[in-house]
């Protein structure tokens, strides 16, 4: 760089970096400090307790269960969302086989693209209300109403979707997937459109079918977008606080009987309701560590040679 340019750049960077240090890094440091105390959350008096909070954490069945649920989300949410988004994006961009020699989406793909994006413009809070009505546990619920009308469910014993230990996690995953597919579809679509048509046409001439052109051409050339999607979705799966805390039973959610608990809900309950704030800060630190590890592992595991075109 030319002389003086560094100073110029640093001048612009100073404010954002300072903000980042004050509002992101410093709270992290503080949280770590608090996690070593028995802070009760409503005053500045506390004792230093060393690593006791962390020891207690690993004997806390509820928190351990919450980690497990986060791991389940981590596996299922990205896989299902990305597969669906890829499938739809492919069909919309290269799935059509109408005109001879041309590569285009299925009929009406422009319309579908807009429709698929709808869920993304809803905030998570609205989604929670919306799906609260879908999963409602009596005949007034959308699912139960339909199933009762069809005679598949007894009106006396409707399915309590969010109050069944075996269903609640799937019910939540469905919401996240429904919300996410549209966004990743658009992301993948954009990436697909930058793939040169000639490659497809060449493959077509060589007699490649839809599946072959997808696996041999689309997927490898999309890999970077998939990787990005994977990291985003993984991070979302490590959080899940808004949906779990508003849709499931219990204070800050997590019910029935801790079967949908995630780390963030356990942390909030301990922090605000039980007054075990130091302990909750230890949970926060563990959450941060796990999320960091997940992101690094995902970026490493999906690293591949870059293809330029």
């Amino acid at each position: 760089m030319r002389k003086g340019q560094y100073r110029f750049v640093a001048g612009f960077l100073f404010v954002p970096v300072a903000l980042y240090l004050i509002f992101v890094i410093w709270p992290y440091v503080q949280t770590f400090g608090y996690s070593l105390t028995d802070w009760k959350g409503q005053s500045q008096t506390f004792k230093f307790v060393g690593l006791d909070n962390y020891k207690a954490l690993f004997q806390d069945d509820i928190f351990m269960g919450a980690i497990w649920h986060n791991i389940l989300f981590l596996v299922f949410i990205p896989v299902i969302t990305i597969l669906l988004a890829l499938f739809f994006a492919f069909m919309l961009n290269a799935g059509g086989r109408g005109r001879a020699g041309g590569v285009a989406g299925v009929a009406g793909s422009k319309f579908y693209k807009v429709v698929y994006f709808f869920p993304q413009v809803l905030s998570l809070a609205i989604m929670a209300v919306l799906f609260g009505a879908v999963y409602r546990s009596d005949s007034g619920g959308m699912l139960n109403g339909v199933l009762i009308k069809l005679g598949l469910v007894d009106a006396e014993n409707p399915v309590e979707w969010l109050n069944e230990p075996s269903l609640v996690l799937w019910a939540l995953i469905l919401v996240v997937v429904w919300h996410g597919v549209g966004f990743y579809l658009v992301l993948f679509s954009a990436a697909m459109q930058s793939i040169p048509r000639d490659i497809y046409e060449a493959a077509l001439i060589d007699g490649a079918g839809r599946a072959q052109s997808f696996f041999r051409i689309t997927l490898p050339l999309l890999w970077e977008s998939v990787q990005t999607a994977w990291v985003y979705l993984g991070i979302a799966a490590m959080d899940m606080f808004i949906l779990v805390s508003t849709m499931t039973s219990g204070d800050y959610g997590g019910g029935p009987d801790h079967h949908s608990e995630v780390m963030a809900t356990v942390m909030m309950r301990n922090f605000l309701l039980y007054g075990k704030s130091g302990y909750a800060c230890a949970m926060g630190v563990i959450m941060l560590l796990l999320t960091l590890i997940v992101s690094v592992v995902m970026l490493r595991a999906t690293r591949r040679d870059r293809i330029e075109f």
Binding site: P27, Y28, Q30, M238, F241, A264, M287
Partner: peptide, 8 residues
Amino acid sequence: VPTMSFLS
């Protein structure tokens, strides 16, 4: 994001 609001 998940931790920040809590941390602040």
